[in-house]
Amino acid sequence: MRDNVMDSDLVLDVKGVKKSYGGVEVLKGISFSLHRGETKVLIGPSGSGKSTLLRSINHLTHPDDGKVYLKGEEVTDSNIDKMRARIGFVFQDFNLFSHLTVLDNVRICQIRVNGVERDKATRRAYEELERVGLSDRADAYPAELSGGQQQRVSIARALAMDPDVLLFDEPTSALDPELTGEVVKVMQQLASDGMTMVVVTHEMSFARQAADEIIFMEKGYIVEQGDPQTLFTGAENERTRAFLNVIAEHG
């Protein structure tokens, strides 16, 4: 947990973000900040706007109103390519290139986006694959890997870009339960290592152990936020308590 955080450590500042689809307001003015080394976990029922919020941060979804700042610089359409190179994104469905090996999947963006020399990109790719426990599968193709392994490759790919912040959108939702643990373990280690992260997840064990702050969203609003101890044992809002109780019942 972080105490007495200085403004110089502010990495991500989300201010009043709104988004509507077909007249339905999905995000109703979301604001939060994220400091260096923090892990924030977004929870809430399906349709509450969590994934839309993540996608709005790096303009995969263009917000209708509000602003997003990355280390004091506004994220805009005009600078989005540069900003996306600094905002790592781990998707639900891995998004790996099926025709490329694991090694090539991890190094391709380093070379094409960041202009990293091939040998250096290769070394970095192996470092990050080692970090997620997959350096021995560098020559494999995605179809030869389990879902958990594919997701760990996508995490390695994001890390190899040296992002300022890493966004996770339900990274275990496409996995069989027995494969979820290996991905959660990697994410917990990243949190322990001080990676700056925003994570949308229903994995409450991860939220309890790794989050500096949990944000509960519903119907496009932030209903309640606080540290894990506060929310799990003494949530003030009735909807927060009800949601956490349902999650606990379904284990």
Rank of each mutant, 00 (worst) to 15 (best):
S205K: 15
I80P: 00
Q110I: 07
G115F: 11
A85F: 09
P142N: 07
V102F: 11
F97W: 14
S33T: 13
Q149K: 01
Q110Y: 04
G181K: 14
S154M: 08
K185Y: 11
I111K: 12
I30F: 04
S51R: 01
D104G: 08
G147A: 05
T122H: 05
S135Q: 15
L96K: 05
E74M: 11
A174V: 04
E130Y: 08
T180Q: 13
L190C: 06
P163A: 00
H99I: 03
Y221G: 03
F243S: 03
E144L: 00
I43G: 00
E73I: 11
T196F: 00
V5M: 15
E117C: 09
D81L: 14
M83T: 05
F94V: 09
K71E: 14
N4Y: 13
Y141V: 05
T230E: 12
D139M: 13
E130T: 10
I57M: 04
N114W: 06
D162I: 00
L53S: 02
V41R: 05
R152V: 07
H35R: 15
A160Y: 07
V132H: 08
V116S: 06
R86Q: 15
K71F: 05
V223N: 04
E238A: 12
V223M: 08
E25K: 10
M161T: 03
V223L: 06
D81A: 12
K18G: 05
S205P: 02
R86H: 07
Q150V: 05
L179Q: 12
T233I: 03
P177T: 10
G16D: 15
G16C: 06
L129K: 01
V132L: 09
G49A: 04
E249M: 13
T61A: 12
L12I: 00
R107T: 03
I111S: 08
L10M: 14
H35T: 08
G148E: 09
V24P: 03
V102Y: 12
A156G: 12
L42F: 08
E25M: 12
S78N: 08
K28T: 10
L70H: 02
D65C: 01
I247L: 14
V198R: 02
G47I: 05
A158G: 08
T101F: 06
G133R: 08
L134P: 03
T230C: 01
D64N: 10
D176E: 03
S33H: 13
G16H: 11
R208M: 13
F32A: 07
R124K: 15
V75G: 01
V165F: 00
E236L: 10
R55M: 09
L34K: 06
G251M: 15
D176Q: 06
D77T: 04
E182A: 10
Y126L: 15
A235S: 11
F216G: 01
V184E: 09
V183M: 11
L175I: 05
K50M: 02
S31I: 04
L231I: 04
D7I: 13
Q225K: 15
A125Y: 11
